[in-house]
Each structure stands twice: as structure tokens, then as C-alpha cells.
Amino acid sequence: MSGRFTIDGKIVAFTEGQTIIQAALAAGVYIPHLCYHPEFKPHGSCKLCTVKVDGRHTASCTMLAQADMVVESNTPALNDERRTLTQMLFVEGNHFCPSCEKSGDCKLQATAYELGMMSAHYDHFFPKRPVDASHPDVLLDFNRCILCSLCVRASRDVDRKNAFALCGRGIHTHLIVNAKSGRLADTDVTLQDKAVHVCPVGVFLRKDKGFNVPIGRRVFDLKPISAYVDASAAIEKE
């Protein structure tokens, strides 16, 4: 089965098994997203990619495209709701862009720019999330984690190491590593792992190089995130 549907009035073709976001991105229609990654099974947790299908809210990364669907995406109301979600993510963690090595290469930041987020709006939670600097090559800064599960999925499905998992529940959900000590150094994670490179924010930082590309010339400094067909690939190349 393949066919067409419309998104914001634009006709988009799809092939069988494609989700709305896959068909849209392939057609050059940007839908904001954070936990979606073209190489991984849809997850549907960040909810940034929520669109309205025939008037009903649904995550476009998990909803299969169907012929003659009427999809709304780039509307002021939906972008307003998405902006609120990015604000929730900003207050939930400790996102201090000026000191972050990933600034300019960060999908959360770039998505917030795209949505015109001028402040985090809510009171900051200021959670305590100590960094893990134990590993010789990789620094883990949990302060920036948005719980998208991409490292969890990459380590499980690509690296076959199950090095990461989400633990806890609700607002206390947090990322853990596969070691009794809780330290990354005591896992089999290496710099070659996919998991180390899929993070859409700045949890995983290489220790051996930093600020290789100066601020101002980074991925989303050059073009807004909406101008990339595959923003994940663009930041992973860095």
C-alpha cells in the first residue's frame, strides 16, 4: 500500500509502513522531534512530533501514514504546545547552554530556537545530577538528559551491549549505566559505540577533543534545524 496524504495542505507521498514523520521528512516537510531517529524503531516519548490527524492529536513518529489523511503540523496552536514541551524539558534538567560543548550541535536547543522559545517559562527544578567522568574517553553529563532513550536503544540494538537503561519512575526517571558501581568506566562502552554518538543533546561528550568547531560555525548555526532533512546525521558527523 502506498498513497498520498496532505500535511498543512501540501500533498505528501508515502510507501507502505512509513510513519507520518518519515514521509513528511522525506518530502522536505519538517516536523519538530527529539526522540525520533531515522535509524531506530519509533519510540514516541518526547511528543514534540505531535500533529493533528483528522482533528485528533497523535505522535507522528508512531502513526503510520494512510491514504487521504489530513494532517496539521505547522500551526500556531501545535507549535505553542510543542514550545511548552521544550520548556518542560528545559526546566526538568539543568540546561546551561553557554557552558555546553554541544551548544550549536544540540537538537533540543535548535528545536527550541525553531519554536521561538525565549525562556523556560516555568520554575526550574534544578535537579541534582552528578556527572560521571570515570571513563577515559567519554564524559557523561546527566544534567542534560531528556530521557529520549536513544542511547538505550543504540546500545541494545546496535552495539548489543545494553550499557544504558532508564531507571526510576515519573519525574524521578533517570539514565543508568550497566555497572554495579554505576560508573561508565566499569562498563564495556567504547568511543566506537553508536550509543555514544546518538545523543540529541549533550549527555555524551568526547574527552579527547572539544570545541573543534567554534561556536557560530556549528550545525545549527549554519542552518536552522528545519532546513535539515536528517538533523541527526548532521550532528553525528560532527
Binding site: 514516541g44 516519548s45 518526547c46 511528543k47 514534540l48 514541551l85 518542560m88 524539558l89 526546566v91 526538568e92 516555568y122 520554575d123 527544578f125 531528556i146 530521557l147 532508564l166 526510576g168 519512575r169 515519573g170 519525574i171 524521578h172 526517571t173
Partner: peptide
């Protein structure tokens, strides 16, 4: 609800806590 939110999706995980606050 804030206590029982599973934490999977952003709106419920953070939103129930914001509403509680």
C-alpha cells in the same frame, strides 16, 4: 497522578509535577 506518572512521555512526566507544584 504526579506520583504515578510512569515518566515515559514529556507532557505527563513533567506536566503532572508542574500541576502539582
Amino acid at each position: 497522578f504526579a506520583h504515578e506518572s510512569c515518566g515515559f512521555c514529556t507532557p505527563c512526566r513533567v506536566g503532572t509535577s508542574l500541576l502539582r507544584n
